[in-house]
Design a protein around this nucleic acid. Sequence first.
DNA 1: GTCTATATTGCGATAGAC
DNA 2: GTCTATCGCAATATAGAC
Lengths: 215, 215
Amino acid sequence: MKQDSRDRILQTATALFAEKGYDSVSLRDITAAAGVNISMISYYFGSKKGLYDAALAAQLSELSSLLSMDADAMDPRTLVREYAERAIRAHEKNPHLLKYIFRALLSPSAAQTGLFEAAVSRIYDLLDHALTRGVQEGLFRPDLDVPSAVLLLAGTVNFHYISTPVRDRIAAEKRVLPDERTYVSHAVEVFLRGIEKPNPRDAETPSPASADADF
Amino acid sequence: MKQDSRDRILQTATALFAEKGYDSVSLRDITAAAGVNISMISYYFGSKKGLYDAALAAQLSELSSLLSMDADAMDPRTLVREYAERAIRAHEKNPHLLKYIFRALLSPSAAQTGLFEAAVSRIYDLLDHALTRGVQEGLFRPDLDVPSAVLLLAGTVNFHYISTPVRDRIAAEKRVLPDERTYVSHAVEVFLRGIEKPNPRDAETPSPASADADF
DNA sequence: GTCTATATTGCGATAGAC
DNA sequence: GTCTATCGCAATATAGAC
C-alpha cells in the first residue's frame, strides 16, 4: 500500500470535516473510517491542525477556476451566466467545497481565513466590475445598487447547494424539487431580468414591482 | 443574585454556541464568560445537551413570527415583501438566529433538527402557496418554476446576513457596502421584477435576459 | 511505514460541604 | 443556590519496537 495511507487519510478527513466541522471530528473517527493507524496522522501531517489545513488548502484551490475569466472581454450578462455555470461545475466536482466556505463564514475566527478571504475578495471584484460595466453600457438599470446586486447574485447561486440536506429531508411531503441546473439557470435568468434596463415603452405604465422600489 | 445565574448562563451559551458551534464550546468557556460556577449548568439544565436544547428552542420560537401571516388574504407580491420585512426584523431582534439555522443546514445530523425542519417546512409552504397563486392570478410569469423561485427568494433574503462577518473584514478595501434594509429591499424588488409577467407589448421584442431562458 | 503503548490534557458530570 | 474537589473518559500526540 506504500504511502497510499496518506491519500486515504486526506480524503476521509476532507469529507468528515466538511460534514461535521473541525471540533466534531476526532482523529480516531478519521483513522477508523480510513482504515489506517492513528499515528499515521502525526507521521504525514504533523497534527490535526496540519491535516485540516491540508484539506482546506485543497478545497480553496478549487475556487481558482471561478476566477480565471477575462471580465473585460465578455458581455456582462454572459459573464454572469458563466460565473453561475462555473459555480455549478465547481460544486459538482467537489461536493465539499461549499461546506468549507459556509463554515468559514459562520466561524470567521477559525483557522486559515486569510487564504479564504483573498479568494472571496477576488470573486467579489469580478462580479462588481461586470455589473458596473453593465450599468455603464446601458444594459442594466441606471439606478442599480451594485454592491447589493453582487451579494444577491452570489447568494442566488450558492444558497441552493447549502440547503439541499434539509430540503431532501422534507421533500417527501412536498412536490418534486428542482435539480441543481434547473434551479441555477432559472435563478440567474430571474436575476438578469430583474436588473435589466426597463423597456422605454413601459415608461408610462410602471410595473407593479417597481412601485415602491427606491433605488 | 437569586437565580439570575440561569439567565446569565443561557444568554452566554446562546452567543457562544452561535459563534463557534456546539462542540467548539466547553462548559468551562461558558461558565467562565458568564461568571458563574460550572456546576450551575448541571443544576439548571441537567447537561450540556440540555443547555443547547434550551438555547435552540428559544431561537426557533423567534421563527414563529415569520409564520403568522394569512397568506390567502394578501396580494402575493405584498406577502413576498412582508416576508422579507419580517425576516429583517427577526434577524435584527436576534442576531444569533441565522447562525443556528445555517449550522443546522450544515450538519443535519446534529441535535434537535425535528423542530427546526418543521419551521422551515412551514415557511416553504407559505411562499410556495403565495407564488403559485401569483402565477394563477396572472401576476407572475406563467412558466415560473415555483420550487426554484421559493428557494431563490429564501436565499435572496437570508444570504446577506450570513456573509456579513467576512464582508465586514474585506470591506475596508472596497467601496461602502449596503446595510441590511438597503440590500433586502433592493433584492426583493429585483426578484419581483424578475418573475413578473412580461408586458404583452414586449412580445415582439424579447428581452436579452430571456433569450435562452427555458422555463 | 506501520503499529502498540502510553503520556498528558481537557472534557462533561456530580457528590457533598456550606 | 453555590462552591470545591474529584471521578471517569476521550481527546491529541508521540516514543519506541518492528
